[in-house]
């Protein structure tokens, strides 16, 4: 049996919305395989984004267990014994984000003063590669996502779909084990959204990268190899699909 890329056991997370406490995740248990192209679906407030954020190591669960590619990610209840240990945990999370996880955001989150190529290069620069390698790899991935010839354009000179392609390229350029995408098509028209999703699927199949993304769009759900339905912070249903 293939070992899980992401192993989640009894994950809990709550936060405060103003003065109101919100129980975002209530004991989620989920095993995500390396071959998964997994969609987290559910209505607003179901816990999709919270779960993605915890998987992406930009948020911490209150309790429960999370393992990413064999690396245990501590929950908040696993209180560090010292400041040094706390710093070590933070360092480990930063290192995991830097090397193993690619992010795609709903709002693209590109830096407006940088060109498409430079936006992609950020992720590689953090890996301490040579400037030549950073340049070649970022141009190559832009070609792969269909942006050849647009490398020197700034985000403001690109359409929404093209900007999200840059964001996809930025997430993939460092060859991460996991790509986390929060509603990647929400700000795109249906045709562009479909093309972005096709692109993500192609890359998933070609590179074998694990994709976990959130959506509430049924057309996007249909393209996932695995669908997890969340409601009120709990996993309601799992569906396995065959990618066409």
């Amino acid at each position: 049996m293939t070992p899980a890329m992401i192993e989640i056991t009894d994950l809990h997370k709550s936060y405060h919305n103003g003065a109101t406490p919100v129980q975002a995740l209530r004991g989620i248990t989920l095993s995500i395989r390396p071959s998964d192209f997994l969609a987290l679906a559910g209505p607003s407030g179901s816990g999709k984004t919270t779960l993605l954020n915890i998987i992406g190591c930009i948020d911490q669960a209150d309790r429960g267990e999370l393992t990413l590619a064999g690396i245990p990610i501590p929950s908040r209840n696993a209180r560090p014994e010292s400041r040094r240990q706390a710093r070590e945990i933070t360092r480990q999370q930063v290192a995991v984000r830097r090397k193993k996880i690619g992010f795609i955001f709903q709002n693209f989150n590109l830096i407006p003063v940088l060109t498409a190529q430079e936006n992609v290069a950020i992720a590689l620069t953090l890996l301490n590669l040579s400037p030549e390698e950073v340049f070649h790899r970022s141009r190559e991935i832009l070609g792969e996502v269909g942006l050849e010839g647009l490398e020197n354009r700034r985000p403001g000179e690109l359409s929404g779909g093209q900007q999200q392609r840059v964001a996809v390229a930025r997430a993939l350029v460092k060859n991460p084990l996991i790509v986390v995408a929060d509603e990647p098509t929400a700000n795109l028209d249906s045709e562009t959204g479909a093309s972005i999703l096709n692109l993500m699927r192609e890359i998933h199949q070609r590179r074998g990268t694990t994709f976990v993304f959130s959506t509430h769009d049924p057309r996007v759900m249909d393209r996932a190899s695995r669908l997890c339905l969340l409601r009120d912070g709990t996993l309601q249903e799992e569906q396995e699909r065959v990618l066409l």
Binding site: G56, I58, R91, V94, A95, R97, R98, K99, F103, F105, N107, N109, I111, I122, A123, L126, R170
Partner: peptide, 16 residues
């Protein structure tokens, strides 16, 4: 803010 958060999500640390 969002840009700084994005850079942190990409793995940029506080020192950088």
């Amino acid at each position: 803010e969002e840009e700084i958060a994005m850079m942190q999500a990409l793995g940029m640390n506080h020192r950088e």
